[in-house]
């Protein structure tokens, strides 16, 4: 489902003396449908960078990055956007929304974007918000004023509302209490069971061992270590 072939990444900082930072070189790995893989390594090792490259958020200097057969590294913007709408979900650590838009609308949006009816989208969104213990009286309010944990749960609801065949999860359980963490872990299990390929970053070891099939240490991708 997700396959990386000889991928390399560098950052060139033109405005800071054209410093070149080699982040990773010659990375190859593959993740099958129904598999959950954890990226590990110390802070700064390149876990989030790798994840953002798979999402097409960061550019890739060399190699191929195939998600469901689409090479994210070389695809046209509209191809990447279609891929993100239909195939590849991403739950980031932070919620980024248009101010003033109600929570229910935020969670519905991914389904509306792929042409589902408003009724279907709202029913599914309500189901997830309930599951994630967001009280119904907050659904009509913008999540920008919510607490950190609530925002993260809204973010997760939005990420899981559509059944993406491939998902990227950046610390989905950070800043959640035990009860909500269990809900998120069960959502991940469900996604795996329906055949989603998942790449995740979990600092929480318990969560990692509960859902992940294997771990990939990104430190080994660094050209400095090699």
């Amino acid at each position: 489902m997700i396959e990386l072939q000889n991928v390399s990444k560098t950052f060139t900082l033109h405005n800071q003396g054209s410093a070149v930072i080699n982040v990773m070189s010659d990375v190859s790995l593959s993740i099958k449908a129904g598999e959950c893989v954890a990226l590990t390594g110390a802070s700064g090792a390149g876990k989030s960078t790798l994840m953002r490259m798979i999402y097409g958020n960061y550019s890739t200097q060399a190699g191929k990055l195939l998600v469901n057969g689409v090479d994210v590294a070389s695809a046209e913007p509209r191809e990447v956007i279609t891929l993100r709408r239909e195939t590849l979900g991403y739950v980031s650590q932070f919620l980024r929304v248009v101010p003033r838009v109600p929570t229910l609308e935020v969670v519905c949006e991914p389904l509306l974007m792929i042409g589902q009816s408003r009724d279907t989208a709202e029913a599914r969104a309500k189901e997830l918000l309930t599951q994630l213990n967001i009280p119904e009286r907050l659904w009509g309010l913008s999540p920008t004023t919510f607490s950190g944990g609530e925002q993260q749960r809204v973010n997760i609801a939005r990420g899981f509302v559509h059944t993406y065949p491939a998902m990227l999860l950046d610390e989905p359980t950070a800043s959640l209490d035990a009860r909500n963490r269990a809900v998120v872990l069960s959502l991940i299990q469900e996604a795996k069971a329906r055949g989603a390929a998942i790449v995740g970053i979990f600092h929480d070891e318990e969560a990692r061992s509960a859902v992940c099939d294997r771990e990939i240490d990104v430190t080994t991708f660094s050209p400095v270590a090699a």
Binding site: H14, R52, G56, S59, P77
Partner: peptide, 18 residues
């Protein structure tokens, strides 16, 4: 040119970075 979030989060050209 490119995907909006890619240009904003990982700009390649000197001017875009600035």
């Amino acid at each position: 040119t490119g995907l909006t979030d890619q240009v904003l989060d990982d700009p390649q050209h000197e001017y875009s970075q600035l």
